[in-house]
Design a protein around this nucleic acid. Structure first.
Lengths: 226, 226
DNA sequence: CTCCATGCGTACCGTACGGTACGGTTCCGA
DNA sequence: TCGGAACCGTACCGTACGGTACGCATGGAG
């Protein structure tokens, strides 16, 4: 209730004040250039010009802060599905290509990589140690990020099938194939430290090849249509 | 020189004594069930019944210990390339299928996942912080693990091409496609904490589909051969 | 003007970890 | 039998971090 009136400036998100979002932005900067070890409560407070006490009041915990960072960043990703013209065969190809480019772009982003590293580093194999309240960071990232972009792909594939350009039984399976063709092992390699800039050079070619391969596997011959 | 005589029992690896390898084994156990935070020098010493001083004498540093863990585990992976009969079309398919199964098996292994999480968690975005001496843990893992299994795939693909069953220009590109078709996003999801056991159930089906798709993309019609 | 909430800055505390030092024991070669 | 090297167990030190408490400034409400 305390954040209803005093910061209705329009930049709010998920019930957080602008100030708090600014703090999360600072924290993300720290994370990107220093890894998880750089995100100390004192460090975030110093970088954001706020007090540690405020941090604990707002986010309750260091884990709460990390979760808030993930949620905040995920909220910024907007999947622009301008798929109102996926009727022609060429249009479908264009849309698939755009999707491939966007996917590679998102996955190679500094912030995305840093957050994935954070969530993965936090993950434990057997028992759940911390995370008393909410779900695991990894689960959080999966829900907020992957599901989003997956839905865009699903609608695109569904439109393609409805228009008679694609043929598949299981949409998830088809999406998995598309994802694999596009991403291959680049995501892992970037997570392991390989320079994203070096890999970005071949993104365009890879995206085109992936789309071509995908259409070869799941596309119905356009000449036989209509 | 001190490890030449007193431990020639046969289990040595990479210039480490059996005792040291046993310590690394303990450390890996800790890592698997507790994540990176569980691999403390004191914890490893306690679990392995050795002294911290010995740890530092053997591995020099905590980073050295982690590197040694990666090297040790990588040395255990043996790529059994029994590809002496990849002449028939069916043999190639069998070999590809076996490769797919092995790849998914390796990637879903507890130790593999834990080490990947460790290396990824250690990775920093911008500047290299620690790692004064050797390369990054991520790089190490990539060299030792990925290269190994990649080489097996490369020879397999090359044999397939030489026998006239496969057609491709760039072997790396073809391997990338094969990898993507097999793995898709399962590796990432497991790294993020998704239960490997649940995913393993569909490994067999996925492997077969991947091989089929790969052959559809890169295989030449067997009936036109010879 | 007064009161009080919010929040900054800082100091503080407990703990846990990396790394080092020391004493005691075992084992091997001379 | 002696000497020494390796090594275990433990104690120790410095530091860094998570979390808490206190003092002070600001700014809006009554």
């Amino acid at each position: 209730m305390q954040v209803v009136r005093d910061s209705e400036t329009g930049t709010e998100r998920a019930g957080l004040t602008d100030r708090q979002n600014a703090v999360l932005e600072s924290a993300l900067n720290l994370l990107v250039e220093g890894g998880e070890k750089a995100v100390t409560t004192a460090g975030v407070a110093r970088a954001a010009n706020c007090s540690k006490e405020s941090l604990y009041k707002w986010f309750g915990d260091r884990d709460g802060l990390l979760s808030a960072m993930i949620a905040y960043q995920a909220g910024k990703v907007r999947t622009v599905d301008a798929s109102g013209d996926a009727l022609t065969s060429e249009g479908l190809r264009k849309n698939l290509s755009a999707f491939a480019h966007d996917l590679l772009d998102v996955l190679s982003g500094e912030v995305s990589l840093a957050l994935n590293r954070l969530a993965i580093g936090q993950t434990v194999g057997k028992g759940r140690a911390a995370s008393r309240g909410g779900p695991t960071l990894g689960r959080l990232l999966e829900e907020r990020g992957r599901r989003q972009i997956g839905r865009r792909a699903a609608t695109l594939l569904e439109a393609g099938r409805r228009a008679g350009f694609l043929a598949f039984d299981d949409a998830d399976e088809a999406y998995g194939t598309l994802y694999g063709l596009i991403v291959t092992d680049t995501h892992l390699r970037m997570l392991l430290g390989e320079d994203p800039q070096a890999l970005k050079q071949e993104f365009a070619a890879r995206a085109e090849r992936a789309v071509t391969s995908f259409l070869a596997l799941y596309g119905v011959d356009a000449t036989a249509d209509a």
